[in-house]
Design a protein around this nucleic acid. Structure first.
Lengths: 203, 203
DNA sequence: GTCTATATCGGGATAGAC
DNA sequence: GTCTATCCCGATATAGAC
C-alpha cells in the first residue's frame, strides 16, 4: 500500500469486509461491525452492495484466489523437481504466515456453501495433468519414485495448511500451550516440510 | 445403535444438536432446526439446556475428542515404527470417512473461539514427549532418519485431514469436479499417506 | 454519496397452561 | 416434562432528508 493513497469508499468497504468476514465468518459477521471498521454507516454498505451476501461474494473470489496455490506457475519453471518443491513450499508458507486466518475462513465457507465454488472456478485452474506428466517423466528418468500429482499436491498443501487452520490444536496440545513455541514451530515448517517431501520422493 | 433402543429426550436433543451444529456451525445453526430434527419444540431445548451456548458446549467436548487422534494409545503399542504409522493412519482415516464433516466443524469452531479449547483440555492429552523419545531412539538405532514428533504428527494429520476439510477444492480443482473420482481418491489415501510417510522416514 | 431514522423479521429465550 | 404463545432484542434492509 502506498503511503499517501486515498481510498475510495468502495475500497474502504471491501477492506473492512475482508477483515471482518475472515475474522468472524459469514454467519458471525455483522454489517454494523463492517461499517464501523470502514468508518462509515450501515446504510452506505447497502448503497454500494445491495446485500450482505453480495458484499461477501464481492470479496470472496479474491480471497479464494489468494488461498489457491499457484501450482501451475511454479511447476512450469524450468528447474529440477526438488527446487520446484522448495520454491512452492516457501512461497505458500510465506503467504500463510502473512494471512494466518485465511485458510480457516476459506475452508469453512466452502464447506458450508460448496456451490460458491462455482462462482470462483475461473482462471484459478490448477491443471494437475501438466504436473502429472512431469512427475511421470522424472520417475522414468529415475530421479524420484512415482507419485500421482493429486496425492502429492494434497500432501504438501495439507502439511502447509494444517498448522494454521489447526492452530489451537497444534499450539494447545502438541506444543503444550506456549505461543512462543508455536511461533518457533511455524518458522521451522518451511524447511521441515521441504525436507520431508524430498525424502519421500527420493529413491 | 441397538434396534429397539428408546432414546431419552436428552439424547434426542444432543443427537440432533450434534448433527445440526456440525452441518451449519454454531452461528449458522438454528434452535428451531435442532428442535425439528429432534422431533420436539424449541421450549424444550431451553428446558434441558439453558441456552444455545450451553447446548453447544454439551456436545462439543465429545466431538472434539473424536477428532483428536489417539496418538498415545497407538504409539505405546509394542510394534515397529512403520507398523505404528500404518495403524494410526488407517484408524484415523477410517474415522474421517465415517465423519467427513467433522474436521471442518471442529477446526472452524476452535478458530473462532480458541478459549473453548480450555474447556476441552482434559484427558485428551497427546503427550508428544513419549513419541519424541521413541523417535530419537529409533533414529539412533538407524531405523529411521530423525524427525521431531511435533512435525511428524502435524505432517500426518494434515495429510489425513485436508482431503475432508478441503473437499470442494480437492474435488473441484484437483480432480476436475467428479464426485466419483473424489471417492476413489479418498479410498487411496490410507495407502498413499502411509507409503509417503514411511518413505520420508527411511534412510 | 452519505447520513439518521425506521421498517421488518428472525431467532433466542421465557411465561404459563396442561 | 412437554406444549403454545409471546416477549424482545439484534440484525438486515429501506426510506427519505441533506
Amino acid at each position: 500500500m502506498a503511503l499517501k493513497e486515498i481510498k475510495t469508499t468502495e475500497q474502504k468497504i471491501t477492506d473492512a469486509a475482508r477483515k471482518v468476514f475472515i475474522e468472524k465468518g459469514f454467519d458471525g459477521a455483522r454489517m454494523q461491525h463492517i461499517a464501523n471498521e470502514a468508518g462509515i454507516n450501515k446504510a452506505l454498505l447497502h448503497y454500494y452492495f445491495r446485500s450482505k451476501e453480495k458484499l461477501f461474494d464481492a470479496i470472496f473470489y479474491d480471497i479464494f484466489r489468494q488461498f489457491m496455490p499457484k501450482v501451475g506457475i511454479i511447476m512450469s519453471a524450468d528447474v529440477p523437481i526438488f527446487d520446484k518443491i522448495r520454491v512452492f513450499v516457501s512461497h505458500y508458507v510465506d503467504m500463510l504466515l502473512n494471512n494466518p486466518f485465511l485458510p480457516a475462513f476459506v475452508l469453512h465457507e466452502l464447506s458450508r456453501r460448496p456451490e460458491k465454488i462455482l462462482n470462483v472456478i475461473k482462471d484459478t485452474g490448477v491443471n494437475p495433468e501438466v504436473l502429472n506428466n512431469f512427475l511421470k517423466n522424472e520417475a522414468e528418468k529415475g530421479h524420484i519414485v512415482y507419485i500421482e500429482a493429486a496425492h502429492l499436491m494434497v500432501n504438501i498443501i495439507g502439511m502447509c495448511v494444517f498448522p494454521f487452520v489447526g492452530r489451537p490444536i497444534v499450539q494447545g496440545f502438541i506444543l503444550g500451550g506456549s505461543s512462543e513455541k508455536y511461533g518457533q514451530f511455524l518458522n521451522e515448517r518451511k524447511e521441515k516440510i521441504t525436507e520431508f517431501v524430498i525424502n519421500a520422493l527420493k529413491k
